[in-house]
Amino acid sequence: MQKTYEQPIDVKKTPYFTAALKLPNADPQKDYYAKFIVYSGFESVEGLAKLDPTTGWQQLALPLDKWKGELYIDEATFAKKVTENKDYVNFEVSANQLSQKLEVGSQISVTVTNNSSDKLNKKLIVDTSKELQYSPSSISLDGLKTGQSKTVTLKVTKYIPKDGVEPKLTLKYESRSFQFPLQDKDPVVVPSGMLYSFEDGVQGWTAGGNVASVSAVQSFANGPTMPNEGNYALAAVSQPAAADAWKTLAVTTAAPVDLTASPVFYYHINSYGGVPNATYETKVLLKSGTEVFTHTAAMSPDQWNRIAVDTSEWAHHSSIDGIEISFRVVGNAMAWAPQFQIDNIGSEQ
């Protein structure tokens, strides 16, 4: 839903954008998010909150007091002040069991993303029991800023299986508690031609230009909210930058990749949308030493886009040692810090 006003609205005296949202017939097993975007010319500010599908109306507020001047507002109402829920801090926690078998030495990747307007300064406590213990016992968030993510790997230091009890990882931040079931996983079957599936973590991918952090996730805020294939996708949180600046993910391959027998390189990409008067595009860059192959294609936000490119005419496709995948907006240079995801990267004939 989007609304543009004929005249700018000055909200200095009512610096909170508020809205009540309800999810009728929501599936409690799925993740739901609300995102507000406020525009002032080419500038914007946005807020993201994870919704509880088991409750009714949920009141959300986006603070605008740090903005100067007049504002174009999407939808809903304005308030002079709001009542803050001291027991609720707007951030997300995800956990990915990296080891197939739960045992002493198993690793669990924990990612914290701050969606609130304030820094996160307190520690995330790792709950333990007589049967299940971890190291470290807490995760320092080190003043995690709005939109930033931090990933920490926990190591299981004690595990004694108990009949009838499903092991869980429990993380606590003030009055909030997050639980993640732990269990032995079936071996990952990698289809022929698959290079990266992210089923066991980030697989060497790192943040490139205008990207703050990366993590393997099971769900995300923008549509369609779930991986293209399997249980995990690679998610990127961008740094604030012009919307038309490339946001990039990169990997150095563990060993040179030979595309001679399957020269069509493909990947799937998804991103935030909502930028006014703009289109979206993605770019892949393949490296072989100092040689580079690039391909740019149009894409659509809030859906998985399959991008395929034939490298058979590139003389160096038999020894690829680096890959970069990027996306950006075309037609609008407003400040923007979106998230985007990639998944299911491989090659075929």
Score class of each variant (00 low, 15 high):
Y5Q: 14
E6A: 09
P8I: 01
K12F: 12
T14D: 15
P15N: 05
F17Q: 15
D27A: 08
P28E: 02
I37H: 09
S40K: 14
F42W: 13
E46W: 04
P53S: 02
P53M: 11
D65T: 05
V82R: 11
D87H: 11
S94G: 04
N96C: 05
K101A: 12
L102K: 02
T111G: 05
V112G: 02
S116V: 03
S116E: 14
L120Q: 08
N121D: 15
L132R: 05
Q133W: 01
Y134W: 02
L141F: 02
Q148T: 07
S149M: 06
T151A: 00
I160K: 12
P161E: 00
R176H: 03
R176E: 08
R176G: 06
S177P: 03
L182G: 01
V189C: 13
F198V: 01
D200T: 15
D200Y: 07
Q203I: 08
T206P: 13
A207F: 15
G208K: 12
G209C: 11
A216H: 00
N222C: 03
M226F: 07
V237D: 06
S238F: 02
P240V: 10
A241E: 15
D244T: 00
D244M: 04
W246K: 15
T252A: 11
A255I: 03
A255D: 11
L259M: 12
A261Q: 11
G274E: 12
N277T: 06
T294E: 13
A297Y: 06
Q303S: 13
Q303L: 13
I307W: 09
D310R: 15
H316Q: 12
S318Q: 14
S318L: 08
D321E: 04
V329T: 08
A333Y: 10
W336K: 09
F340D: 04
Q341D: 06
I345S: 10
